[in-house]
């Protein structure tokens, strides 16, 4: 067992982990941040995407020990300070960008990473960027629409079927 310390959503967090403890296990277990989901556990599905030092990573494919000293942001850190939904979260609600919600934390975190590098992506760029995030409910249309809306673009012409 080794001690790890990191900053998670702006607050100091630490705990004892085994070498093999995954970052996502550390977040969901000892830290109780169960918003980050585990879908496939093999970096295919993207439900576990979090930001480590500002970059999107799949938290099932990083050991907690590797995040020692890092700045981690999870879906719990995406809301505004007063608890209201952040811009991307609100857009997902407004445009019905989720059904069962399982993939949503990863979708929101990937969307945030995309918009940080590319504040006004085209629809094609959004679809391409989401290739590592799998949704089995929505057919992606409303997810794409929500992300386009969150970037401040007019989405009235984007099909919703």
């Amino acid at each position: 067992m080794a001690k790890v310390s990191m900053t998670v959503n702006g607050a100091a967090a630490s705990g004892e982990v085994e070498g093999r403890t995954l970052l996502v296990e550390f977040l969901r277990g000892p830290l109780g941040l169960t918003g980050t989901h585990v879908g496939c556990d093999t970096s295919q599905c993207g439900a576990c995407v979090v930001h480590v030092n500002g970059e999107a990573v799949k938290a099932c494919t990083m050991f907690a020990a590797e995040a020692d000293g890092a700045e981690v942001r999870t879906i719990e850190g995406m809301a505004n300070a007063d608890g209201s939904l952040g811009v991307i979260q609100q857009a997902f609600q407004d445009h019905h960008g989720l059904q069962c919600g399982f993939c949503t934390p990863g979708m929101v975190m990937s969307a945030a990473a995309l918009l940080k590098d590319n504040p006004k992506p085209t629809e094609a760029e959004v679809r391409k960027y989401l290739e590592g995030n799998i949704c089995r409910c929505t057919g992606y249309h409303n997810i794409v629409k929500a992300i386009m809306a969150a970037s401040g673009q007019d989405v009235s012409a984007i099909a919703a079927e």
Binding site: S43, G46, V49, E55, A56, V57, K58, T61, M62, S110, A113, L114, Y129, E131, G132, N133
Partner: peptide
């Protein structure tokens, strides 16, 4: 190569 969130690592 894989997906964006894999290429960051």
């Amino acid at each position: 190569i894989a997906h964006p969130a894999i290429r960051t690592r």
